[in-house]
Structures are given as C-alpha cells and as structure tokens.
Design a protein around this nucleic acid. Sequence first.
RNA 1: GAUUCUGUAGCUCAGCUGGUAGAGCAAUACACUUUUAAUGUAUGGGCCCUGGGUUCGAGUCCCAGCAGGAUCACCA
Length: 513
Amino acid sequence: MLQELSEQEELRRTKLAELKKLGIDPYPAEEFKVNVTAQDIKDNYERDKLNYKDIRFAGRIMGIRDMGKAAFAVLQDSTSRMQIYIRRDDICPQEDDKTLYDVVWKKLIDIGDIVGIEGYVFTTKVGELSIHATSFKLLSKALKPLPIVKTDADGNAFDEVTDPEFRYRQRYVDLIINPKVKKTFEQRTTIINTIRAFLNDSGALEVDTPVLQSIPGGATARPFMTHHNALDIPLYLRIANELYLKRLIVGGFDWVYEFSRNFRNEGMDRTHNPEFTILEFYVAYKDYFWMMNTTEKLLEKIANDLHGTTDVVVGENTLSFAAPFKRISIFDSIKEHTGMDVSKMEEAGLREVCKTLHLEIDETMGKAKLIDTIFGETCEGKYIQPTFITDYPVEMSPLTKKHRTEEGLVERFELMINGKEIANAYSELNDPIDQRERFEEQIKLMERGDDEAMFIDYDFLRALEYGMPPTAGIGIGIDRLCMLMTNQPSIQDVLLFPTMRPENNTVATEEIN
RNA sequence: GAUUCUGUAGCUCAGCUGGUAGAGCAAUACACUUUUAAUGUAUGGGCCCUGGGUUCGAGUCCCAGCAGGAUCACCA
C-alpha cells in the first residue's frame, strides 16, 4: 500500500525519530501496570478519596489544553474519559533539565498517542474531577492524526464524524471518537449475554454445528459456494443451522441452542448483511404455544436487563416488551387489514384478491406465496408493538408440523416488531413421511421456477426416521433484535465490521504479483 | 440489479449564472502553572474521487467509471 503522506503524517514520523534520538522507545514492550479506570474514579472517588492518592492510569490522549508551564489533557481509557493535569515542575523536578516537559510532552506528544501516568486524583477550581500527574510515559505513538470531535458542556458535538463510509471502513477510529458507537456494541454483547444466561439457566445446551455444509438446508436462500480441495467436493457456507440442531434433538438432547452466523448471497440494505446472526433453539416435548410464552419472557428480560424497563424507544415509537404479546392468526390479520377473508380461497381467488389490492404477482407464485404477498404488503408493516402472527398455510412452511385442528395450516408463528419480522418459530415437523412429501413439494416448486425452494437433505430424513420427539423450535434475528433494542436504523450500526466493497488501494496486488 | 443524492485540507463543511481554492477544528511557531468547544498572535497544508469531452478557460457544465448513502426489487 503505497501512499503519499500528509503534512501531519510526515511531521509525526519526524517526532518519532526525535523520540528515539532522546532514548525514548515509542512502542515499549514492558507491562504498564494500571490500577484504576476512569469510570472507577468517577464512581468512587468522592466516597473513598484515600484510595486515589497513588494511582497508575493509561489511555489515549483525546485533547490537550496547553497553558505554558502546565497543561490539561483528556485521556480516554476503555471505560470513560478523565482529565489529567500535568505541570512542568512536577514532571521535571531538577532545575537544569526540563527536556521531558518542554520537549517530550510539549513537542513530541500528540492527540491520539497512548500514555500511562502516575499521580493522584483531585478536583480542579471549577470542579472537574482530574488526575494530577506526577510522571508520564509514552506507551504508543500515533502516526495518523485523529479526527477530533469536541463536545461542549451540554453534550453538543462539534465536527462529529458522520461519513458512513469512513465510520464502517475504519471502525477502530469510529469507536475511538464516537462514544455512542462503543456503547451500542457493549449493548449488543449485553443482549447476547442475557440470552445465553436465560437459556443456560433453563438447562439448555449451547452447541456448535457445521458452517461448511454440503447441502445448504433449513431455509431458502442463495448460498455462498466454496470448494474443499482434499475431498474435491463443493461446500456451502450455511444459510441456516436448523437441520443440524434437530438432528441433536433426535440424538437425545432436550434443549439445544446456537448463535448461528449465517451467510446468504443476496442483496444488501439497511436490514440485510451477507453474514448475520440468528439464535436458534429447539426444545423437546414442547409446542409453539409454549414457545410463544418463552419468547415473551425472553424479550421482556432482554429489555429489562438492558434498559431497566420494558418500554423501549425505537425511532418515533415506544415499544412495550411487557409480556404477554398480542397474538393473531395470519388470516385474521389479513381480514382485519383488508376486510377480506382469504382463509378458504384457492389460488384463483387469491390472484383476484391480489389484483384488487394492486399487488404485483407472477405466474410462478403458488397459493402460499400469494398469501405471503398479501400479508407482507397490507399487514406486516402495521405491527409496531410486538405481535405473534400465527397459523400459516402449509405450502410456505416445509419444516413445520400440520396444525392440530385447522386443515391446510401449520403450527407456526412469526414475531413482528416495529413492522419487521424478528423471529420465526414452529411446532417442528417430526413425521418423516410427511417431511419427505413436503420436500418433494419443494422440488415441484423449483421445477415451476421458484428459485427459492429448498434442497432435500436425505440424511436429515434418515434422522427423522429414527424418531424425533415433538419439538418446538425458533430462530431469532439477533442483529435486528439489537437494532430494536439499541434504536439503530441500520444493520451496519450493530455489526462491528459490516460487509463492504474492498477499497482498491488496500488490496495487496503487489504481493499477488 | 433500478432510480436518486453525495465525493473539495487529517476531520466537519462553504465555494453564486464557468475566470487557476476558503472557514472552523486539527497541525506548526510564540505567549500563558487550575483550563475545559481554553485563549491571543502569526504560519503552513489541496491529483477539488478517476478518466474523457465542451470551452480561450472547468472544483463548477456534459459523458463514462469508482466508492458511499437513501429509496425500490430479492431476502432475514
């Protein structure tokens, strides 16, 4: 990567050389023992001042206010920011040599550098909690200038870096300069930890299943394809892990779960990234009613653990995650929003309805897809508060058990929140003969031109033939859940490194040649 | 994939109906030993995304490309 250096970058390299000339290692190897964090000081100093008389603190310099023979600087560690006060006569007690302050601190240290200090905590005249530094040590020299975002007393940010390309490509900088971004990702981890604790406390077993699959099953999507050289076979990155988790239920685990990184070779937008995370869990001897109850409890707990309340503000709306959530069947929902009862209709009737509603349809669409289109266009966006949509037509759910009383339906629900699908769950189909027929239906759909139909996994059928207990299963979109819980409008803001087209100047063509 | 908007200093942005670049922050120099968007004075810093075209002359107009955003389509 060959690139012209800017004026400021040239200058910092010069400073680096001068530091070395003074015998200062700009990248020292030895441990710098830290005994306090910024947040610790803020939380506990007033209560227990004696503990902050002899502290060692390290962080990145985010700002310097030079006052001549003394200076204030703002240091940022992993927890927060803390002002430090540094005086020439403390740093350089001997009368004849003020190099360390006048040259090293004032000339050779920049915003963005990482330093460690020793000192004591005090409060300034104007009341700001600070560390009075008695010594400092350079721990890492920054060669690129950091874009500085200044914030006033009211929290207004000035010159905030908002360019999405800059923020996503150089997330490390985004995290340094935008504290809110860091908070979002801490919240994401809190959400995942809450889910994991909830499941583990319930006796669930976390498992790992293959990411590389020879049959990309369990969902309908275009997979990423790769090739295994030693076996000389094509392999696919998984689009779902459902069929593997069900094999484990056959194997005798009663409750398994996995945070599954899935890969789908499809479009990207505000709610889609080529790789994304779905939590799936499967529980033996349960049905989809039990799963609705459990899902409500889980989401209520996530909101509470994260915000201390079940009310979560998302954009213009305040969502209530207090259980129970509203439940309505897909046919009742369509009736409610269009006034039409499509529950008894055949394909021709559904096509008429679509025409009346001015919905775009084509010849390859079967009964299920038509119903899905009607629901998607007229109902889905209306469900702002968490709502379970239940009892889907059998044709659009090839892995779901037939409804216990309703002909032509399956025991399935989707959880809609803020107009988007967040979770999808079934009473799992465990009848191996029925499952085989459903797969064969999918083949027919494929032949009709539906490029989204499922592949058949014969080993999965074999597993079912050994007997799978009645099971309830669910998939919850973790990225979308995080978007809701952290009030982020784009999936890229809840993924640390969202997929992007590579920058051409960072591709190592020199190495390839 | 389609439509549309954006791309100017390290960062945030100005730049009119075409006349060879501006501000704030950051940087450099000097002053200042409790400041806080520190302050004051001075200074430096630009393949104006890339390549074509129109024109005496293009940051500005036209075409193509690259990158990103938004909307739509597909999908979770």
